[in-house]
Amino acid sequence: MQHANQGTGPTIDGQGLSIAIVQARFNADITDTLARACRDELAALGVADSAISLHQVPGALEVPVVLERLARSGRHQALIALGCIIRGETYHFELVANESGAGVTRVGLDHALPIANAILTVETEAQAHARAEDKGRDAARVAVEMARLLERLA
């Protein structure tokens, strides 16, 4: 099954890929939307449901440690990070956003494994709801496209 992504990007095919998703439960109404859209798009791209694993963690700061374990397993061609960080009145937003992002990036670079980072960082809950479905689908497309690109580069 070939599926063309939106825009001018390449046609991407997820058949035969194994992809793991790590979803933060904090702001679950939003992260559940991210996960649902992501899984739907992975299916549309040809990734078998049995080749998709979903792992939930308490919040965005816990996402990188599970990504690390999954990357180390060698069982997946790509990983996806899902979460939602909404700005509050304290510095905590910056801490969580910066540290979770740095952790996700480090795991990907350390293991030369594509990780689609769809941990939303937004000002308001309304912004998160407005972006969740599109960002979930985008994460699926990025994961599949990057897995295929790294295969070609190997």
Rank of each mutant, 00 (worst) to 15 (best):
H3V: 02
A4W: 14
A4R: 15
N5M: 15
N5H: 05
T8F: 13
T8Y: 13
P10F: 10
T11R: 13
I12L: 07
I12D: 01
G14S: 02
Q15W: 06
Q15G: 12
G16N: 12
L17V: 10
L17R: 07
S18D: 08
A20S: 12
V22L: 10
A24C: 11
R25C: 08
F26L: 08
F26E: 01
A28K: 14
D29A: 13
D29V: 09
D29F: 11
I30G: 05
T31P: 05
D32Q: 14
T33D: 02
L34P: 00
L34K: 05
L34M: 05
A35P: 09
A35K: 15
A35I: 05
A37P: 00
A37G: 02
C38F: 02
C38E: 01
R39V: 14
L42H: 13
A43E: 06
A43M: 03
L45V: 06
V47Q: 07
A48G: 10
A48S: 13
D49T: 15
S50C: 04
A51Y: 01
Q56P: 00
V57S: 06
G59C: 10
G59H: 07
A60Y: 04
V63E: 03
V66F: 10
L67F: 08
E68D: 14
L70C: 10
A71H: 10
R72A: 15
R75Y: 01
H76Y: 15
Q77N: 06
A78Q: 09
L79K: 10
L79H: 10
I80Y: 06
A81W: 03
L82S: 07
G83M: 10
C84N: 03
I85V: 13
T90W: 09
Y91D: 05
Y91F: 07
F93L: 07
F93W: 09
E94W: 03
V96W: 01
V96T: 14
A97E: 00
E99S: 12
G101S: 09
G103C: 09
G103W: 09
V104M: 06
T105M: 15
T105A: 15
R106L: 13
L109W: 01
L109F: 07
D110F: 02
L113C: 11
P114T: 12
A116T: 03
A118C: 13
L120E: 05
L120W: 07
L120N: 08
V122W: 00
V122T: 14
T124I: 02
E125W: 00
A126F: 02
A128E: 01
A128D: 01
H129F: 11
H129S: 06
H129A: 13
A130M: 07
A132Y: 00
A132L: 01
E133H: 09
K135G: 00
G136S: 11
R137I: 06
V142M: 12
